[in-house]
């Protein structure tokens, strides 16, 4: 077995998941190749960290913390619901006001733009954009 083949099987060798003949072949290679043996040793040590990381002792305050968090959330929730209901009513209202103001402003600007077109070309170019921005949300709003 070549070094490259060993590298591609090493993790399965360490996990003892290879078929018996391959286990043996890797074992023999490692015994003869210090380079691969070193890498195998490294990988073994690194993978063994998994065992040491498992939670062995439980936090004695865990339940108290869960309960406190639960109580805190239950207290906040009623007002949370109220504010979300409020938001659901207020948002469309605010949106409509902005929309109406926007359209009104757009019409106004369009009118002034037309009047002063010869003097303010830059403003004239801006006007269609402003109108677009106002009209587009209205269309999508109505389509919904």
């Amino acid at each position: 077995m070549k070094c490259k083949a060993v590298h591609s099987k090493l993790i399965f060798f360490l996990e003892r998941e290879l078929p018996e003949p391959e286990m043996k072949a890797v074992q023999e290679h490692l015994a003869a190749c210090p380079e691969c043996a070193l890498f195998a040793e490294e990988m073994k040590k690194t993978l063994s960290i998994l065992e040491t990381e498992k939670v062995s002792e439980v936090n004695p305050y865990f339940y108290t913390r869960v309960k406190a968090k639960l109580d805190r959330q239950s207290e906040i929730q009623p007002s949370g619901i109220r504010s979300s209901v409020l938001a659901r009513v207020l948002q469309p209202v605010a949106f409509s006001i902005i929309l109406i103001l926007g359209i009104y402003g757009g019409v106004k600007m369009g009118a002034t733009g037309a009047k002063t077109a010869s003097t303010f070309t830059a403003e004239q170019e801006m006007v269609p954009y402003l109108n677009d921005m106002d009209v587009e949300p209205l269309e999508t709003f109505l389509m919904e």
Binding site: K54, V55, V58, F62, Y63, V66
Partner: peptide, 18 residues
Amino acid sequence: AFRKLVEGHQKLVVNTCF
């Protein structure tokens, strides 16, 4: 019952998240 549930399964849940 909630306390029992938490204490009985806290290790499982913390370990999985970790």
